[in-house]
Every structure is written in C-alpha cells, then in structure tokens.
C-alpha cells in the first residue's frame, strides 16, 4: 500500500520532537499513516496538494498535529489557512507545542482549534498525551461528514 490514506499530518520542525512523537505513535500502533511536514509551508502544500504535492489527490487527514513555532509559515497562520478553506474548515487540528503562553492559547482557540496541548517535559507524560490524542482523534472521534 503505497498510497494509504494519510490519517495524521504532523507539522513539526524539530527532529528530536519528530522522532519522539513518531516513536510514541508507533508504540500506540498509529504510525503507519503519518505524514511529517517540517515547516508550515510544507504542511499547507501537502494539505492542499500544491508544490511538491501537486500530484496528490485531495484527501484530508483525520487530524493535524500542529506545532506553533514553525519556519516560514507559523502554526497560527497554518491554522488560519485551514479554517479559511471550505474543504478543511472542519478538519480537527490539535496544537501541540512547548509554549504555554496565554496569548498563544487564546489566539488558537479564537481560530477554532480543537485542542491545545502543551508538550510535557516528562517523557512518560508526553507519551501518554500523544497516545490519548491518537486514540481520540483516530479511533474514538467520528470525523465530520463532508458536506
């Protein structure tokens, strides 16, 4: 299956965070359908089938895990673009970030983020959080039906 539908789009620039997140997802048996975008621009290109992803048929993932501090286009801007597009207006987006600045939390919720999760320093907590996230958005939650 080369073109298995992508279920999780992970937008994260830090390689260590990517590695730790992927490992956790793998441990939770959720790895097979993750696409990693290393900056905001790539994340949007992937989502909307532009640039290097021009050939892809549009198919929204089940959830986007979005870091706030991303090169080129930051997380808030990515979220804005997602909410502005009719096709992805209802796409579940989870902000996953180191920041616990109130300003970030507020602007994320204003833009209609589905959850805002601060990555815990403690790895066990981190693992647990990621596992819960994956389970909730991929297994428990029914994706919004396309209208």
């Amino acid at each position: 299956m080369i073109h298995a539908a992508v279920e999780i789009l992970l937008a994260e620039d830090n390689p260590s965070d990517v590695e730790l997140t992927l490992r956790t997802l793998k441990r939770s048996n959720l790895l097979n359908t993750v696409h990693v975008a290393r900056d905001g621009e790539e994340a949007l290109d992937f989502l909307f089938c532009r640039g290097p992803h021009a050939g892809r048929d549009f198919a929204a993932p089940k959830v986007v895990l979005l870091d706030l501090k991303l090169p080129k286009v930051d997380g808030i801007e990515v979220l804005e673009a997602i909410r502005a597009d009719e096709r992805t207006r209802l796409l579940p987006v989870v902000i996953l970030t180191s920041s616990r600045e109130q300003a970030d939390v507020t602007s994320s919720y204003k833009l209609g983020v589905n959850s805002y999760i601060q990555k815990p320093v403690d790895f066990e907590q981190f693992q647990e959080t990621i596992r819960q996230l994956g389970l909730y958005w991929l297994v428990v939650n029914q994706p919004p039906s396309e209208g």
């Binding site: 830090n14 260590s16 965070d17 730790l20 706030l68 501090k69 970030t97 180191s98 920041s99 616990r100 600045e101 990555k119 815990p120 320093v121 790895f123 981190f126």
Partner: peptide, 9 residues
C-alpha cells in the same frame, strides 16, 4: 518557554 523546554523534553 518555547526553546528551553524543548531540549529538556
């Protein structure tokens, strides 16, 4: 808050 916590993690 962003950058110092990441390496710790």
């Amino acid at each position: 808050s962003h950058d110092l916590r990441a390496p710790l993690r």
